[in-house]
Design a binder for these strands. Structure first.
Lengths: 214, 214
DNA sequence: TGTACATCAGTGAACGCGCGTTCACTGATGTAC
DNA sequence: TGTACATCAGTGAACGCGCGTTCACTGATGTAC
């Protein structure tokens, strides 16, 4: 479904619009919906407008998606892949087990929210009405898994250790809250002058640096 | 606008529907929209359905609100009043300056999110498209002010002290993130077995208990 | 290499729907005299 | 206390709109022989 690029029928330089068969409509629809969600917020999208943006009739999307919900799920699924990749790359850029590695995971999260606030919101507003999407739930847990792994490395404990889970959740709460507040308050509130990295390092130390009694 | 109950024209026991003049339509519309938002999420509301729920023609709401956005703003405004009152009550239930007072402010926040997840979400999704609502921004800052005050009391510093602001923001981020994660993951993830109060006390100590270097 | 054919990915017209909003209206209420 | 009147808060019919989705269709593509 998302593997091989379908061997584009048209010559490499030619605009694909020229061909009758689009060749990449599914991906282009998802990209169009991403744009729309950034522009008008989650729910500020319509199948019709996405099709228009992809230069295609309003019926065409139904060749690739069952209904509008499935398109949104596709966008979210893709976004979660990107988010997880960014978090993993953040961790990988620092010594395993360092505070910096933990903070970098959080920074990737915040940066994603800043870069794509609409999509970021969509990821977390989808819960309503799409509860039966086990693949998305799994991807969500994979993202959390990156945090858990970084914390486990830092504390030199197993990821399944309950203390690791607890502290990872505390960290995630903070990063998640900071991300949302940041994109909500665009310029407002003291948070405007916040240096993400310093905050993340502060929090990492506060939550992982000393024993925290339950 | 939100002060005196307009001296209900109908006899106290009689169902107000009986009277031609509704007497309390504005409040009832807001209540109806709250219900709809709980049921179908933010954006899952329509003027038409709210009017239907209030037992009134679809044109009636426009006697009280300029357009659909103004209704939503009314709901959010009312929700923010309740949220702030709950936070203040939480703080007031514990000795001023105690860790418990700080945690209780956070707990009120989390409890609000749990009790009215749809409205809670609405409060924070409204930012898009309603940026020009200074009264709502002010109410938002008032809510934050309750956190700041509790932190200032705890640290025995002025609310305007930058260190107080920083730590209040850290606390708020955590509480905000935890609230959202809680209502998103209804049952999922480790967070299910979380005891809010223990978590809040843990975090209060971690962030306010020891000096945190910038 | 050429042809027949199944499949695929589009088209475009059409449908019914519910919504937001406006409009001229009217019944009920409160008030001035 | 009674009456005239301004105002208020509803009604209900109507509008135009864009949307989601279906449908029969058709042109392009890839493949078997």
């Amino acid at each position: 479904m998302s593997n091989e690029p379908p061997a584009t029928h048209t010559a490499p330089g030619v605009t694909p619009k020229a061909s009758y068969h689009h060749g990449d409509l599914r991906a282009q629809l998802i990209a169009a919906v991403q744009d729309l969600v950034e522009l008008h917020g989650p729910d500020g999208f319509s199948v019709a407008e996405a099709a228009r943006r992809a230069g295609v009739s309003s019926a065409a999307p139904y060749k690739h998606f069952k209904d509008r919900h499935e398109i949104l799920r596709g966008v979210v699924s893709e976004a979660m892949d990107r988010l997880r990749a960014a978090m993993e790359a953040g961790a990988a850029a620092h010594p395993r087990g360092s505070f910096e590695a933990v903070s970098a995971v959080g920074l990737a999260y915040v940066n994603f929210a800043r870069a794509e606030p609409g999509v970021f919101r969509l990821v977390f507003s989808l819960t309503e009405g799409h509860e039966n999407a086990p693949d998305l739930l799994a991807k969500g847990e994979n993202c959390f898994g990156v945090v858990v792994q970084a914390v486990a490395d830092r504390l030199a404990l197993s990821p399944s250790n309950p203390e690791v889970q607890r502290r990872a959740y505390l960290l995630w709460s903070f990063v998640h809250g900071h991300s949302f507040l940041t994109i909500d308050m665009k310029t407002k509130v003291a948070s405007a002058e916040i240096n993400d990295w310093d905050y993340l390092m502060t929090i990492s130390h506060a939550i992982l640096g000393a024993p925290i009694k339950a």
